[in-house]
Design a protein around this nucleic acid. Structure first.
Length: 938
RNA sequence: GCCGACUUAGCUCAGUGGUAGAGCACUCGCUUCACACGCGAUAGGUCACAAGUUCAAAUCUUGUAGUCGGCACCA
């Protein structure tokens, strides 16, 4: 068989995905088992404008690993994929393109044609992210791909809106909101990021009192807002100002008069103890204004320039220019007391980084209280959803819910779900699922729909069930029945509030069940200096570059290999090591294939009992109707017939050892994945395959495998190693889909017969093979410890060889002194010991009888000596032995310290104490032997 | 201001109440017939610091320092 010397990821990556997809392997319908347990995950929908980044790659890898694992186990598996319309960023992108290509603004072309342009843009470029998802190898069901603005999903949005409105949980009102002057839309609190201002200043302005020489000083960071001041407030208990309460101020730069009011909100100790009140431009002032019936004067336009209410001198000035002018004018009037440097953190638009302007504005809001309580109850009652890692996210999530405030859901955009509210001439509002429903309610066709659209996250909040068909009108589908609640949500911590919690709330509210059982919060991939990757810092690592350089599978291993929930700095070296790992597997398989004549993949070669059981079952079925597997007598009767001379039963220590290790690994991998400890699974597989299988097992059986003598024994050995690699590939498949499929298809005797029973009629693929669960009965402690004894001997001899600088071509004789039982083990593995330790003879005895010029070593079960006449450097040998004695004695010292502690003997568990005593005895034996050797050398 | 996480070998990170682990880098040796993206053998750590709980602490508790993150407030 022709097989390349090195793994070429690109070839494998290009050849399998399309077949997987078109053969329907990704759809749940591929599962023929009617009773199969369902398993489902919805992908966090990436922005339709988006490009794949490392965060996606990480979460996608984790989800796909779980899905592939469960699918191989026979679950009816659904992995839902789709994209998010991403209101603001998509609108911005198309706006930019419109300006570049046609030098027009959205307003120039009008709402309808602009939206058409966005759809056209989406058709043309929106597929980029889905192409990249395919590249990652994700086993998502493309036949169920969704977009948040699909007709059914949009219907779901309107349904939810109408129902929340009708029960009074959605309302329209005037509130101080976060206004982005650049994007010209309102933002929710979660889309605002607080950042330190570079050179913040605090301005002290003096306001003269009417009919008095007195002035009252207020401090502000935003002097331009004074043009909209409608009061000055002081604390009622502040003696300095008590007499001024109720008096009138002549507000400079305006011809308005404003009152001094008293309010508990003002802290006397802070600043001057007097606060200027601008109800239209500050949330606290707004509240205070309501309490004191103050007018609200909006002095700004939507782009943060001043409006006419600010006065003729200021109109159309940008807010910062206006600030400058206000300060200059106060100075000219002699009313500028001072300017201090001041550290302020200012709210910024998360997307465009513009400083947010708090603005009084008429918007739509959701009252969250009812839904919040549903989510909190769920956590209280069922501890659901379960967060991984639980600390700190369970608390973060709960605390946020407890302090939840109303959600601003309207956005001044055109791209998105237009708010299903219509107004008649009189300004009456009709909220309805459709325009005709609104017309019916209003009794007139003369209606105008609300111009605004909904926050993108409003539709995302419905994602877990809207993708499965729920839209209010349709509330029951096969998919909903089978796959909701979904099993696990995998996402970043930045959207726990924006998305995770809102999905929980809407799902509980509208379906009466949670959207998912578990939530995995993955870590953040940082750059190699531990900095967050960002577009502005240009330190981002493009997953596609990494794919091209090291392969998709190596990248996936790197990502899955990081501990769940923990941030980690990106290292190309790490991917490189998994690239090497891929190559290692490639070559191990290559070796097996180069020696595969007469061999086949057949599980009974590594688990003869499975075959025995199967045959017994067969015979049993023929002999008696109600064959009972537990019927020992019966079993014994049928056994000898076919067990005799079965080559599959001829297992060496090494065979039993690797089978034991394989099953242990399989058990542990399943256990780790069950706890979402991907990194544990990765590490188990890495070390089983590289260390146990490649470094030891292949070497141990190499001579037998490559033997030119054709016989059943050789073929059995070949079948065995092939089957072990086949099982290993299955275990690895959820992590490294391309490599494992590529190799699996090359193995002899591969067929759908190896599939999980649920997929027997599907075209052959490793992704539907039965995932090895591991068999406890095949764990062979004895084989493991016996193999360890052999490995110890080989390692010690290798150590002597290296330290004594013995040429590879020099082949000494190994003398081993050991107990009779141990001698038997070494005798059974003589050929392997000689080969791997590069020796030409093995002498076994109770006691060593070797010349003085010998190098020696001890293992727990054996004393080893290599007669090295003429090769031995006595000085070096003494140093080497002393080094070993030193290590053992250091350990002995620590253990003795424990044993000399009476409390330890008394209180520590008996087996612990005994374990230490045993170890001490072992050390003593070894030290004695080594010392005798030292004495002999001196 | 409140809450939280992290600090382990040169680097990046696992780990855990009972003798410190990996990958990479380093040192030495190897054209050993799957693989130099390899093989073999070493070396390297008072597990941030201090106190406490315990027979036993790198692991639990408290405090300190540094790093990072979330939330709130900001006249």
């Amino acid at each position: 068989m022709e097989i390349e010397k090195a793994y070429n990821p690109k070839e494998a990556e290009e050849s399998h995905y399309q077949r997987w997809e078109t053969s329907g392997f990704f759809t749940p319908e591929i599962n023929e088992n009617l009773d199969a347990e369902p398993y489902s995950i919805v992908i966090p929908p990436p922005n339709v404008t988006g490009n794949l980044h490392m965060g996606h790659a990480l979460q996608h890898t984790l989800m796909d690993t779980l899905v592939r694992w469960k699918r191989m186990q026979g679950c009816k598996t659904l992995f839902i994929v789709g994209t998010d319309h991403a209101g603001i960023s998509t609108q911005l992108m198309v706006t930019r393109q419109l300006r570049r290509d046609e030098n027009k603004t959205p307003t120039d072309i009008g709402r309808e044609s602009f939206i058409q342009k966005v759809w056209a843009w989406k058709e043309k470029y929106g597929g980029e992210i889905t192409r990249q998802i395919r590249r990652e190898g994700l086993s998502v069901d493309w036949s169920r791909e969704r977009f948040t603005m699909d007709e059914s999903l949009s219907r779901a949005v309107r349904e939810v809106f109408v129902r929340l409105y009708e029960e009074g949980n959605i309302y329209r009102g005037n509130r101080i909101v976060n206004w982005c002057p650049k994007d010209k839309t309102v933002l929710s609190d979660l889309e605002v990021k607080e950042e330190k201002a570079k050179d913040g200043k605090l301005y002290y302005l003096q306001y003269p009192l009417k009919n008095s020489d007195r002035k009252i000083t207020v401090a502000t960071t935003r002097p331009e807002t004074m043009l909209g001041d409608t009061a000055v407030a002081v604390n009622p208990n502040d003696k300095r100002y008590q007499d001024l309460v109720g008096q009138t101020i002549e507000l400079p730069l305006t011809n308005r008069e404003i009152p001094v009011v008293a309010d508990e909100y003002v802290e006397s100790e802070f600043g001057t103890g007097a606060v200027k009140i601008t109800p239209a431009h500050d949330p606290n002032d707004y509240e205070l204004g309501l309490r004191h019936n103050l007018p609200q004067i909006n002095v700004m336009n939507k782009d943060a320039t001043m409006n006419e209410a600010a006065g003729v001198e200021f109109v159309n000035l940008d807010r910062y220019d206006a600030r400058q002018l206000v300060v200059e004018k106060f100075e000219a009037l002699g009313l500028l007391e001072k300017i201090e440097d001041y550290d302020v953190t200012l709210p910024h638009c998360e997307r465009c980084k513009t400083v947010i302007e708090p603005l009084l504005s008429l918007q739509w809001f959701v009252k969250m209280d009812d839904m919040r309580d549903l989510a909190l109850d769920l956590m209280e009652r069922e501890s659901a959803p379960r967060f991984f890692p639980e600390v700190p996210y369970k608390k973060v999530y709960t605390t946020w819910l407890e302090n939840l405030r109303d959600w601003t859901i309207s956005r001044q955009l055109w791209w998105g779900h237009q708010i299903p509210a219509w107004y008649d001439d009189a300004g009456n509002v009709y909220v309805a699922r459709t325009e005709s429903e609104a017309v019916e309610k209003a009794g007139t066709t003369d209606l105008t729909q609300d111009e605004d659209v909904l926050d993108t996250w409003f539709s995302s909040a419905l994602w877990s069930f809207s993708t499965l068909g729920w839209n209010g009108e349709i509330t029951e589908t096969e998919d909903l029945k089978n796959f909701h609640p979904t099993d696990v949500l995998v996402t970043g911590r930045d959207i726990i509030f924006l998305w995770v919690s809102r999905m929980v709330m809407t799902s509980l509210k509208f379906l009466g069940e949670k959207p998912f059982k578990d939530v995995i919060i993955h870590g953040t991939v940082l750059d190699k200096n531990g900095q967050r990757m960002s577009k502005t810092k240009l330190n981002g690592i493009d997953p596609l570059d990494v794919f091209a350089k090291f392969g998709v599978d190596a990248t996936r291993m790197t990502l899955a290999g990081s501990a769940t929930g923990v941030d980690f700095a990106w290292r190309d070296e790490k991917v490189e090591s998994y690239r090497n790992f891929a190559n290692k597997i490639w070559n191990a398989t290559r070796f097996c294939l180069l020696n595969s004549e007469g061999a086949q993949v057949d599980y009974s070669y590594i688990n003869p009992q499975a075959e025995v059981r199967e045959i017994k079952q067969l015979i049993g079925d023929e002999l008696v109707d109600d064959f009972d597997e537990e019927d020992e007598e019966f079993l014994d009767k049928v056994e000898p017939e076919f067990v005799k001379d079965n080559p599959k039963e001829n297992l060496s220590i090494a065979d039993r050892w690797i089978i034991s290790r394989l099953n242990r690994t399989a058990l542990d991998v399943n256990k780790a994945l069950g706890k979402y400890e991907f990194h544990t699974a990765v590490s188990l597989l890495y070390h089983f395959i590289w260390d146990d299988f490649c470094d030891w097992y292949i070497e141990l059986v190499k001579d037998e495998i490559t033997s030119e003598t054709v016989n059943t024994k050789r073929d059995a050995a070949r079948s065995r190693i092939l089957t072990i690699i086949e099982q290993s590939l299955r275990l690895l498949h959820p992590f490294m889909p391309y490599l494992t499929e590529e190799l699996w298809q090359k193995l002899p005797n591969i067929s759908s017969e190896l599939h999980n029973p649920a997929y027997r009629s599907a075209e052959q693929t490793i992704m539907l093979a039965d995932f090895p669960l591991g068999d406890k009965n095949l764990i062979d402690e004895r084989a493991e410890s016996e193999m360890q004894a052999v490995i110890d001997v080989i390692s010690k001899v290798r150590n002597i060889r290296a330290e004594m600088q013995i040429k590879p071509s020099d082949k000494p004789v190994i003398h081993i002194a050991a107990s009779g039982d141990a001698q038997k083990i070494f005798a059974q593995n003589e050929a392997q010991i000689l080969k791997l330790a590069r020796a030409e003879g093995l002498v076994l005895s109770e006691k060593l009888d070797v010349p003085k010029a010998s190098a020696k070593a001890v293992t727990p079960l054996a004393e080893i000596a290599l007669p090295l006449e003429g090769l031995i450097d006595f000085e070096k040998e003494i140093a080497r032995l002393e080094n070993q004695v030193g290590k053992l004695e250091k350990e002995d010292e620590q253990l003795q310290k424990q044993l000399s502690n009476a409390n330890f003997i008394e209180r520590a568990p008996v087996e612990k104490v005994q374990g230490i005593r045993d170890r001490v005895a072992e050390i003593e034996t070894q030290v004695t032997a080594l010392r005798q050797n030292l004495d002999a050398l001196r």
